[in-house]
Simulated scan of single mutants.
Amino acid sequence: MSVAKSDYKRVTTKSLIDMKAKGEKISMLTAYDYTMAKIVDTAGVDVILVGDSASNVMAGHETTLPITLDQMIYHASSVVRAAERALVVVDLPFGSYQSDSKEALRSAIRVMKESGGHAVKLEGGKEIKESIKKILQAGIPVMGHLGLTPQSIYKFGTYTVRAKEEAEAEKLIEDAQLLEKLGCFALVLEKIPAKLAQRVAESISIPVIGIGAGGGVDGQVLVLHDMVGMTHEFSPRFLRRYMNLFEDMTKAIGQYAADVKSKDFPNANEQY
């Protein structure tokens, strides 16, 4: 089975399904603004997720719940302007799709029309089936999200690993198969046992992208700010930090402030 990276000029939902069929792992990262999205896209990441995690890392909220549809559209439109290769998936925020399927469709249409995003992502399984069906019937691609679903944090009461018990694990498998049957093009599994995640990935034909779900799935996603070390308080087991930008940037900014105070900046070569 080939694992060579394919040269996709533009990654599409079909590209991801092809990647799974060929055994090529899918790379996915979040981005919320033009500059960071440009870097992520240029680096060759397959999927950019405009996550409702913007509520945490961009706005400083404790949970993802406060972010609005208007704010998600703003972030998504900034990312879309930067992405030349990556597929851009946009989270529908809490309250924009759970209550009824017509509102879900209106929310998804707004995201697609106003941001130019390529797909939307929704959290949940059987309980949001009608919303997913309605959005798909309008021709809008849907990515699912099961396991730890942060929009339901007050229901769970904790960010601990999900589906460790047999009943919840079986429901997760059923929900994953339902999402495939409905027509979702891919699925995110968050913070579940690795063996269960692999079992799900092997039981469905659509790509399964994990975060804290082990290596037996079809791809991985991380929050960009965590991965490059801009955040430093958050250290779950699944996070690999590739840089320590918090430390580097703090040092650089501190040096700048000191140079201004000491009149070292600007020097003779840095003025007109």
Rank of each mutant, 00 (worst) to 15 (best):
A138L: 13
Q177N: 06
P193Y: 09
G215I: 02
I67N: 14
K38Y: 06
R110G: 13
G124N: 01
I26K: 02
T63I: 11
Y74I: 14
I253N: 07
P207H: 05
E180D: 10
E127P: 05
A119C: 03
D91F: 03
G23Y: 07
E233D: 14
G144V: 00
V50N: 00
D46E: 04
G219V: 01
D7S: 13
D70M: 15
E247F: 01
G44Y: 09
E233P: 05
A108R: 00
Q151F: 14
F238I: 06
F94E: 10
T160P: 04
A86Y: 00
I204H: 00
Y97C: 10
E123D: 01
S101Y: 06
L69R: 15
G210S: 03
D52T: 09
E202F: 04
P207S: 00
S15C: 03
V79E: 01
D175Y: 02
T68K: 15
R240V: 04
A138Q: 09
M249R: 09
A268D: 02
R241Y: 05
G23K: 05
V40K: 07
K25M: 01
A104C: 12
S6R: 11
F94G: 08
I192K: 01
E247V: 05
A167Q: 11
G212S: 07
V88K: 08
E103L: 15
R85H: 15
I153R: 12
K164I: 03
F156L: 15
L189I: 02
A186T: 04
D264S: 12
E114A: 11
A163W: 06
E103W: 14
I17R: 09
G216C: 00
S96R: 08
L178D: 03
K126I: 12
A82S: 08
E130A: 05
M19L: 11
G216I: 02
S205T: 10
I39N: 10
S115G: 11
E84R: 14
K20V: 03
G215N: 12
V142H: 03
D248Y: 14
N269M: 01
K121C: 04
V90R: 12
L29N: 08
T30D: 10
I253C: 03
T149Q: 12
G60R: 14
D218P: 10
I109L: 14
E24D: 08
M72I: 10
L136C: 10
A213V: 00
I17H: 09
L92D: 05
V161R: 10
E114D: 15
K155M: 15
M19H: 07
G229M: 07
A268Q: 10
E170W: 02
E62K: 15
P266H: 04
S107H: 13
R162K: 12
L122F: 06
E270I: 06
